[in-house]
Design a protein around this nucleic acid. Structure first.
Lengths: 344, 344
DNA sequence: ACCCGGAGTGGAACCGGTTCCACTTTTGTA
DNA sequence: TACAAAAGTGGAACCGGTTCCACTCCGGGT
């Protein structure tokens, strides 16, 4: 087990001072004679020298690292988001430290502390909703925070990247209303989340515009974790007047909800028209393929990274940004006109 | 934007030397009078002091961080594996830096260099198969390497955690043979990977034991990336004598393969019995639900982390470990006796 | 009364980079 | 030719921890 060479080894071997080597390593940090630059580069190559990140960070005061804080990677939405972010970050020479919260504010708090220890220069996160002071403190210490997918209203100065939640929910609802449905169920996220509220509002707006009353019993705000989606679906289907349309707007509960539908054996779309918020590849493999709201992950990833990087380089004005990207509605065969439903 | 307090701030504020603070921070590194310990702890709390990881790492020479190198997180197998590993690691106070390779040895080489810069004490990886010298160098520099899922035969001294590939493939094949199938297709990974070879061998062994000849045209080794699984399936189905059974043993190509089956509209299991290597939740949602080889992700994650940690603490003997965990075969409704097939 | 050993403490070197600054050499221009 | 400005260089401080070591106490054994 060898020891890795240091900058002083390189300097000695090239017959120059460490300052020169450092300047070769960081162009624009000072002049170096072309001949010596060549020497140094040759020695670096021969020795296989690589500067140690810890030393660099210590002296710089911050790391070329960002933290990515998501609920968990078993949710394909976050997995693919993480994949894109890691990919984008790499192309900017930035590493990603991954932390998961399991929707637990305590674990989230831990993660933030750890990221602080690491002096990350930025954090991209899907916040649980708690830890308001902690987030504020993070920003206070100069960490650039970007929330993706969700936001926390109490935090005014955070950049946010999300999809057009209100609009997506509204369009989905309108689509079902357009097919003649009047009893449309909505399974969405907790009311404590911005996402959950926006989607309910969109759902309501669609009803209002169509002069339809909203049955509050058809709206189910359920947690992100556990099997709550399936339970909600079960409960909805056993109502005296069960819904003829269903929108699952809680991405984390789509799988659970659909599993229940399959278990119960309800015929889609004959007995129930279904739309889910998720562009998981498998939605297309089901029979019938599910109509979905496709969340443009690339855009979410690109924009959030752009914001973090922009802040890191001080390129952005002080005021917080809110970027909402459009989500596509993809009609497949899981929705049918109510008339058809009535036949059965 | 405030500046975070340092150990010297704490020392000054508590009226002690930095040595004392450091000893409070690292119990067992030296004695501290109980009274002073209390003082220091109080000040730390008041100031919200947290030691900076970079400084610690610089002086320690290595980081309490491991690198996780996988192909990409859009493959649910890796996503869930990463999730488990991050989760396990956290409970040991260890952070995970995530890198993806897209199966590209160049990107993999980049990742390894980066991890080296970060002085990670361990790496858990699904190697692409290239970069043999680089992996060796990494070990030479004292980084503990554990391969998970796959291995590289040329590297003798690496710990490996994988499922029983030979056995899993053999059992799947036997299951179809037991149902009367004689023309069983196998879509597996590249022959350059240990996984690919082991699975083919298992498939062959099952045939031999049943005194069945193997039609080499039914074995398709395809890359992990792209749409190669779908293409292989398409090609298999258009053979003069198409297979009546199909095993997709290339986890990365399961989705692509199944998508093709759905597109073609072949009836499962009437026209084709299907088994896939993957315990993706959606396999259960299809109609019919797919029979699968369930890879015990938790075990893979736990064991690989255990190995890395064990090495880090020097608890393990020098010789490399090979841990093979059992994968369960889950029969669902995508397999039927050949007789039934003959009716159609 | 004397000495020894261990608890407790602080000073200072060290880890491996970056950066400021003083200094020498070259270059350009009047 | 003279002199200011720019290019090039190396020494040393610094980032914020850890750790070695020397030193001061104190109590216990002879």
């Amino acid at each position: 087990m060898k020891k890795a060479p240091t900058i002083r080894d390189v300097a000695a071997s090239a017959g120059v001072s460490v300052s020169v080597v450092s300047r070769v390593l960081n162009p624009d940090s000072g002049p170096v004679a072309p001949a010596k630059r060549q020497d140094v580069l040759r020695v670096i190559d021969e020795l296989g020298y690589r500067p140690r990140a810890a030393a660099r960070e210590l002296s710089a005061g911050h790391a070329l690292t960002i933290g990515l804080v998501v609920t968990d990677l078993s949710n394909p939405f976050f997995a693919r988001l993480a994949d894109r972010i890691v990919w984008e970050a790499r192309s900017h020479g930035i590493q990603v430290v991954l932390m998961t919260t399991q929707e637990d504010p305590h674990l989230e708090a831990d993660s933030l502390d750890t990221l602080l220890d690491r002096s990350v220069s930025g954090v991209i996160a899907t916040p649980t909703g708690g830890n308001i002071e902690k987030w504020a403190r993070l920003q206070d210490l100069g960490v650039n925070v970007v929330f993706v997918d969700r936001t926390i209203d109490e935090l005014a100065n955070v950049d946010v990247v999300s999809i057009e939640n209100f609009d997506s929910a509204k369009r989905s609802t309108q689509h079902l209303i357009g097919l003649g449905h009047t009893r449309i169920a909505l399974v969405t996220g907790p009311l404590s989340t911005s996402t959950g509220r926006a989607r309910i509002n969109g759902y309501r707006a669609a009803h209002e515009e169509a002069s339809l009353a909203v049955d509050p019993l058809l709206i189910r705000d359920v947690p992100f974790r556990g099997d709550s989606g399936g339970d909600a679906v079960g409960s909805l289907l056993s109502m005296p007047q069960p819904p003829t349309g269903l929108i699952v707007a809680n991405t984390a509960q789509v799988q659970s909800s659909v599993r229940r539908l399959v278990q119960v054996g309800i015929r889609i779309p004959d007995e129930l028209s279904v739309i889910v918020f998720d562009d998981n590849p498998w939605t297309e493999l089901m029979s019938p393929p599910l109509s979905v709201i496709r969340q443009p992950l690339d855009m979410l990833a690109v924009h959030s990274l752009e914001l973090v990087l922009g802040r890191m380089q001080g390129k952005l004005s002080a005021d917080p940004r809110l970027i909402e990207v459009k989500a596509d509605f993809l009609a497949r065969n899981s929705c049918a006109p109510l008339a058809q439903t009535a036949i059965h």
